[in-house]
């Protein structure tokens, strides 16, 4: 049993492939480690400098998978270009968890209502994964989930390195909202993120993602389509609320809330988050 602090991405990948000393798995914040079965080796990628960067290059916002929630929440660049992600990172868990938990871990753990993951899904993020030194591939966000708490990111084989996000340009904005039973230390009863593009005061592009609704953050495509071309009136947001509530497939739980309430809540959050994203888009000239 060995805990390896990776010094370079290539080194981490090499260590991952070296199965001679037993099964290995990649971790970053490692906050959920106590819930999981432990392999023989853990490869900690949280200190790789390139995975902690937030940069804007070639028209894309590149956010490292090892960026912690508090780092994301403190990043002016993320607030400016992908506000939903900064917002999600600000509200999650507790200060202690946000100091150590990472965006990559939030996605790779594949919890159904992970805040940052919901924001990333709405932002249309793509994931860059390495499976050996120098070899990477880019996956759309939707392709990262295999089932409840089960990720397609195989932490025993590959390293999630970056998220690529189309930055908010003029007339574009995003937002994230969560609803919890308590001010901190709570999983959300529901959360929602949206990204919109405006043209002449109307919705030209809409991305709306809610959770928990199935194993992965759930994109509400019917509602998105319905809203295209709508103006930014209260009527539009009511329509969004109604449509989202009807479209979303939810489960209830004795612990958190009933199906009916979650359906209502998701509708309300959808209307509010779209309105907030649109306001930001309007300001973003």
């Amino acid at each position: 049993m060995k805990y390896i602090i990776a010094k370079s991405l290539d080194g981490a990948l090499a260590a991952l492939q070296d199965t001679g000393t037993g099964r290995a798995r990649v971790v970053a914040g490692a906050t959920d480690l106590f819930l999981q079965e432990q392999p023989d080796r853990l490869i900690d990628i949280s200190r790789l400098p390139e995975l902690q960067e937030v940069t804007l290059e070639k028209g894309l916002l590149r956010v490292g998978a090892a960026v912690t929630h508090n780092a994301a929440s403190a990043s002016g660049l993320i607030w400016e270009k992908a506000a939903a992600l900064a917002e999600a990172s600000t509200l999650l868990g507790s200060p202690q968890i946000r100091n150590i938990g990472t965006l990559g871990g939030n996605v790779a753990n594949a919890a159904p209502a992970a805040d940052a993951a919901v924001a990333l899904a709405a932002l249309g993020a793509e994931a860059v994964l390495f499976d050996s030194p120098g070899r990477f591939y880019v996956k759309p966000f939707a392709g990262l989930y295999a089932g409840y708490n089960c990720s397609r990111v195989d932490s025993c084989r590959e390293i999630l390195a970056w998220f690529l996000i189309r930055p908010a340009g003029p007339g574009q904005g995003s937002a994230f909202l969560r609803f919890t039973a308590r001010g901190a230390l709570s999983l959300p009863l529901a959360n929602a993120a949206a990204r919109v593009t405006l043209e002449k005061g109307r919705l030209k592009e809409v991305s709306l993602v809610v959770a928990p609704a199935g194993p992965a953050p759930s994109r509400l495509k019917k509602t998105e389509a319905l809203l295209l071309g709508s103006n930014l009136s209260g009527k539009t947001w009511s329509m969004a609320e109604e449509s989202a509530s009807a479209e979303v497939a939810v489960r209830g739980s004795a612990l958190r809330c009933s199906v009916e309430y979650r359906r209502r809540l998701i509708g309300i959050l959808a209307g509010r988050v779209l309105s907030l994203a649109a306001q930001r888009a309007q300001r973003n000239r």
Binding site: Y3, V27, L33, F34, L42, D44, S94, P95, N99, I100
Partner: peptide, 16 residues
């Protein structure tokens, strides 16, 4: 310098 839950930090992570 950052507040963390010691119960969630693997000992190996403290290295350095």
């Amino acid at each position: 310098g950052l507040a963390v839950n010691a119960c969630l930090v693997p000992a190996g992570k403290a290295e350095g």
